[in-house]
Design a protein around this nucleic acid. Structure first.
Lengths: 224, 224
DNA sequence: CCTACCCAAATTGTAGACAAGATCGAGTTG
DNA sequence: CAACTCGATCTTGTCTACAATTTGGGTAGG
């Protein structure tokens, strides 16, 4: 009768993720199993597993016998993440060549409408979420399974910085216009143009992200 | 006094990895904790962690309450993996722009010499390993940390197919010639040419990989 | 000031037990 | 005959407790 309950490590990973993204756990700081155990009321197994799940999502790093830490950042790292994301998102759009894009375009237009709604309502959280939805719709439609994990990883890695940006109210809405251009090109079957705009769409934000990363990083602890 | 030993899950993951790559565990087949426990003489904790480590390397997949399975493959998946690897390796070479490549070139030439040695000695295993070394040398030199995990993942995913190819003695040595061309371009500072050849170097092998994947896949178990 | 040793803290490994969910087959029903 | 239901059984999920290694840092001695 009750919905099949998702295992503790997954729910735990989401909660820890939020703490990382919102900056409560600083980049480079140690995540000690005992602390997390008592903080979240779970036992060792699930805690370790949650940390491994977060490693899979790019938010933690682990060194044997040294434990887990929040992934450390530098401005240079952020640049590498954004450039890589640009390349991969472009690749995902290019891989749409030869497909019937009508169903995808319909969903993208719907997403754009919702995003516009969030924009006029000043719902920044919803706006950001809809932004992620747009890119996820494309990725899902490609059906490119090997591409999913790397892209999700890079997106998660960039999420703390995006949150820092949000807190400063920067970058209010180049996104929506870009998304509408991309959707338009896809609707017209001009895939390569859509891919080019997608790449630029991501690279455009790099400067702001680099400005925000300084905010986000205080103690780095960039151990080799 | 004793050497600092690497934790059990890591050694265990390597052993299970070998069994997957060599085809002893078929793609899509279930990896049950109890079986692995008794087979390798470790207890459930380390076994579960080893399976998570392999998920991080792209060799296993996990569904909550259903357990771990060897990652299933299709010919289509292999194509996606190779195309993605081509894009990423190209990106890694392109990111060398503006660096002093002398130290890298020296190491690459050394690797090429070793590879030639393996070739004349008909040491196929060493040849394959040296092949991986070449690409790893470039990746390490870029210092692009966010790029490392995705590329290693895709490489590991392709490893079972590569092994199947090796078993059939196919594709004996376009690699060495390609590597020497790439090294030459890098030595001459022609990065973009090196990047182009790198991309082609990987895409060239796609047809053979697709031929081999049929060999490797017998029972797929491609559960949604 | 530097080195060697020692100790506290953290991670790692193991065992046992029970709960919760999934799998699969037998039996029943439409 | 097909589909569905109900359990028995297997597997994963979770917790507790204890032992073993290793790390990191502090202290004493040269």
């Amino acid at each position: 009768m009750s919905a099949p309950q998702t295992p503790i490590p997954y729910r735990l990973a989401d909660r820890i993720r939020d703490a990382i993204v919102t900056g409560r756990y600083r980049p480079g700081s140690a995540l000690r199993e005992q602390s997390l155990e008592s903080e979240y009321g779970a036992s060792r197994g699930p805690v370790r597993e949650a940390l491994r799940l977060l490693e899979l999502r790019g938010l933690t790093v682990h060194e044997p016998r040294r434990g887990f830490r929040v992934r450390p950042y530098t401005a240079h790292t952020i640049e590498q993440i954004y450039r890589l994301r640009a390349v991969l998102e472009r690749h995902s759009v290019e891989s749409l060549i030869g497909r019937d894009l009508a169903p995808l375009v319909a969903r993208l237009e719907e997403s754009n409408r919702r995003m516009r709604g969030c924009f006029v309502a000043r719902d920044l959280a919803g706006y950001l979420q809809e932004n992620n939805t747009f890119h996820r719709l494309i990725l899902d439609f490609t059906g490119n399974e090997p591409l999913r994990r790397p892209l999700e990883m890079l997106n998660e890695m960039a999420e703390p910085v995006r949150y820092a940006l949000l807190a400063r109210r920067l970058s209010k809405s180049r996104s929506l216009a870009d998304h509408e251009r991309i959707t338009g090109f896809l609707a017209a079957g001009q895939i390569l143009d859509a891919a080019r705009v997608t790449e630029a769409h991501i690279l455009d934000r790099l400067p702001m992200a680099q400005a925000a990363v300084a905010e986000y990083c205080r103690q780095s602890g960039t151990a080799p």
